[in-house]
Design a protein around this nucleic acid. Structure first.
Lengths: 310, 310
DNA sequence: TTGTATGCGTTATCAG
DNA sequence: CTGATAACGCATACAA
């Protein structure tokens, strides 16, 4: 790799002039500029990013820590984030983590001058205490300030309206075991029912953990009738689909399913179930704004999803 | 962030000694070592990785370019790669690419001193000419040297044996439109049939591009009977499943499906279809060996998958 | 408009 | 065993 010294020698100017031409660019005689440009072209010179990082402040790298438990979501987030990143000449350093320790590990190994900022995505486990420049996306306990989360209550309520308007009045919520998200979903679910003057039946709220399909089977075994099903993500939807198929219940004729966290881009999902989908591009944009500091005053950000009919 | 200067001041030794204690570590008086360790601990000092990169040669970063068309596969590769990387204290810089231009873009933006090496994953499109330190994994045209690919012929042949041994003798191959992989698959498919003295029927080789389900429908419309189906990946399998379900053909009773590129970790695939699965950990290990140069002499590497019954 | 000198944080060389 | 000092490649304040 050619360095700035090579260029300066070949162009017969100083390193400073080379640097000026290729970055600052103002206050350089046209003759010099041309010489530099020509030399740089001839040597195929590209400034070394590591040296730039050391000299300047920013490295242009952002660490992204993905919770493995929500890989399905990561598949959607990652391309959206990366697109924004590369648009702004930033690099995405990827790590996966299974638990709080894994997150700590990742934060540590990336946080030694390599990254300007960190993003944690989809962690459903309690997080360790973290610095101010860590952004939380779709994490269970988002401790205020730098976090982007989804309005799950809104999603559940919307889903209820949708199903009820389609003639389903016995709605089952296959919820998370606990956590902020679970509570929000339950709250939205109850509001949705209330709005339509439907009674809240505790039997119809099942726990997807540890197994959505087992939960569904238990529900069926209990004899509780239902004709609408709210699941937390497309993977759960697929599981439910299989179980219901095995029990001879057709979807959506006998029973309608809606996913509370959709994923447009996931191929292979031929039968199009209705879902609440979140604008990933917007999400990525906001995340980048937080990193660059444009949104620093905004505090926590809550995004509402769109209902996408099947 | 504390620097080596802060530590050296606090420990009343020179920067050189601090550096020695924290890396080389040999030939330091114990008293000095303790002083350095204590100071470093007090200041929570961690060597700046960027400075280390500039001083030394390696940055410890590896660029990974994922073809978006095979996101499903990426979901499997990425965690396996990242695990190996972090085990060896390497960082994974992620980029996505849609086409050759995207790849070129990514190579360019990461190849300015930031990355020690590059990996391209799952590109089914023709690649631009690339440097020697670029490793190709599961790419369509793997130009010799640094590439890891799958033995698709072996996979197709194994799949045929499996299906035929399960009483299916009318096997359809839903193949790629063209490319090396397609040819290999076809070759293995034919060998599998030959071995069992079954005739090769051109009607039973369909093209999954642009749409697997359309291809399958055409096949069904044509009236060609079949009771076994080889698809190239789980996504295609799911599509096929839907189409066949719509046509009232039950799987695996009336017809068996096998995926030639499996994915264990993908949740939500409740009904377990048989598949050829590739050992991702081993793949990642080999990739890392190539990067670190342990495998440099090996040339192109071909990996065979395991049959995993449904 | 241009060149010189300095700093960014480490590692490595080389005297002492 | 240890401490100056020189790289690494670039940006920039300052001087000319």
């Amino acid at each position: 790799m050619a360095t700035i010294n090579d260029v300066s020698r070949l162009a017969r100017v100083s390193k400073a002039t080379v640097s000026r031409v290729l970055s600052g660019s103002r206050g350089v005689r046209d003759e010099s500029r041309q010489a530099v440009l020509k030399a740089a072209g001839a040597l195929n010179y590209q400034p070394n990013q590591v040296a730039q990082s050391l000299s300047g402040q920013s490295t242009g790298c952002v660490g992204v820590i993905c919770a493995m438990e929500s890989m399905q979501l990561a598949v959607n987030y990652l391309p959206a984030l990366e697109k924004q990143f590369s648009r702004h000449n930033k690099h995405l350093l990827l790590r996966f983590a299974d638990d709080a320790m894994g997150v700590e590990d990742a934060l540590f190994s990336m946080g030694r001058g390599l990254c300007d900022a960190m993003i944690i995505i989809g962690a459903r486990f309690p997080l360790p205490s973290l610095d101010k420049d860590v952004i939380l996306i779709d994490c269970l306990d988002a401790p205020g300030e730098n976090s982007i989360s989804f309005d799950h209550a809104f999603a559940a309520e919307t889903a209820c309206h949708y199903l009820i308007n389609h003639g389903r009045r016995q709605l089952v919520l296959l919820n998370y075991a606990d956590g902020e998200t679970a509570e929000q979903l339950l709250q939205g679910y109850r509001r949705g029912l209330e709005y339509h003057l439907l009674p809240y039946n505790r039997q119809r709220v099942a726990c997807r953990d540890p197994s959505p399909s087992v939960a569904l089977q238990s529900l069926i075994n209990s004899g509780t009738p239902f004709n609408g099903l709210l699941v937390v993500n497309p993977a759960d939807a697929r599981e439910a689909l299989s179980v219901l198929h095995a029990f001879g219940r057709s979807v959506p004729d006998s029973l309608a399913i809606i996913s509370l966290e959709g994923s447009t881009s996931l191929p292979g999902s031929l039968l199009p179930l209705p879902a609440i989908e979140y604008p990933l591009e917007k999400l990525a944009e906001k995340a980048l704004d937080m990193i660059t500091g444009k949104l620093q005053d905004g505090g926590p950000l809550v995004i509402r999803g769109n209902l996408v009919a099947g």
